[in-house]
């Protein structure tokens, strides 16, 4: 279904989406490695773009941190942003839930659209925006409360008071985050007693509890061991069925494993703003990137 048309003929990216039998009925060469145009790729297809950045530049005070970023994030897919430290990947994330406003002295040019609506419009309620666009942080950051209260935090903010309703939300969120089995008998325990990986899945469950549409993940596994990382990746794979996920990661193998689209960002020279060098289907980026900078980075020939 979805990805296949996006990929402009490059079928194998979407494992399980198209069976070869169906494919062989289609006309034309079924496999073409070339032809996925960078930023245009996802936009050209019938799949809906959940988030769109249009010519976005971003300033911290006088410093230009991002230059002219145009990025279409398709719905119900995992989109990864990779690139060396300080290239502005996390800044791009923050623009999507307006967390950059918590820093002060920032300025945004261009448009950031969520379902076609510019979220930087004056009349967009940032509180409502953030309930639609959740964020998972680099370091697991559960509140020093019980597991239950952590997850009920968001729903309670939104006025859910009934015990059985909250119980349902807590269970559903934990199940979705693949943590339910491990904690169902100790929901009253402090979240701080969980392991790092469990804490991060708790944070995912906490975000799911407010039923967001988009989930931003800022290097969610960088503080975790390989097993915990694996569990988070498995969770992401399931979540993508229902949510649009944008993940920033230092680990390009991770981007390759879990994402359907990848953007490569780079600061060409110190002091310059971060730019989106290339954006396209993950299989394309990791097989035949258009840009030499991308190839150098993902093959470890960077610098």
């Amino acid at each position: 279904m979805s990805t296949e048309s996006l990929l402009d003929g490059w079928k194998p990216t979407a494992p399980g989406d198209v069976t070869p039998r169906e494919e062989s009925k289609m006309e034309g060469s079924p496999v073409r490695i070339e032809g996925v145009r960078a930023a245009a790729a996802p936009g050209t297809a019938s799949v809906r773009n959940k988030v769109e950045l249009k010519d976005v530049s971003f300033y911290y005070g006088d410093f230009k941190a991002l230059d002219d970023i145009t990025l279409d994030v398709p719905e119900n897919q995992v989109t990864a942003l990779i690139g060396p430290s300080g290239c502005g990947k996390s800044t791009v994330l923050r623009l999507i839930n307006r967390m950059h406003e918590e820093i002060g002295h920032t300025r945004v040019e261009g448009q950031v659209l969520l379902d076609g609506r510019d979220i930087h419009d004056r009349d967009v309620d940032v509180v409502e925006l953030r309930s639609r666009v959740g964020e998972i942080f680099q370091k697991p950051n559960p509140f020093p409360k019980s597991i239950y209260d952590n997850i009920a935090y968001g729903p309670r903010l939104m006025g859910v008071r009934k015990k059985d309703e909250l119980d349902d939300i807590v269970e559903r969120s934990l199940v979705q985050a693949a943590l339910w089995k491990e904690v169902k008998n100790k929901l009253g325990n402090s979240a701080m007693d969980l392991s790092g990986g469990q804490q991060q899945r708790l944070c995912i469950a906490r975000t799911l509890a407010v039923q967001p549409e988009v989930i931003l993940m800022d290097e969610p596994c960088s503080a975790l061991d390989p097993v915990a990382t694996q569990q988070i990746e498995d969770t992401i794979e399931v979540l993508k069925e229902d949510y649009t996920i944008i993940i920033v990661t230092h680990n390009m193998q991770q981007a390759a494993r879990i994402s359907q689209f990848t953007g490569f960002m780079l600061v060409q020279e110190t002091g310059e703003p971060g730019r989106l060098v290339e954006y396209g289907a993950t299989s394309k980026i990791f097989t035949m990137p258009d840009r030499e900078e991308t190839e150098n980075y993902i093959t470890g020939r960077f610098g």
């Binding site: 967390m99 509180v127 953030r130 964020e135």
Partner: peptide
């Protein structure tokens, strides 16, 4: 990070102060 988590969940600043 507590404040960030709360704000990112859609809490207002005052809710964040009061509850976290």
């Amino acid at each position: 990070s507590f404040r960030q988590a709360s704000l990112a969940l859609g809490a207002t600043r005052w809710q964040t102060i009061r509850k976290v």
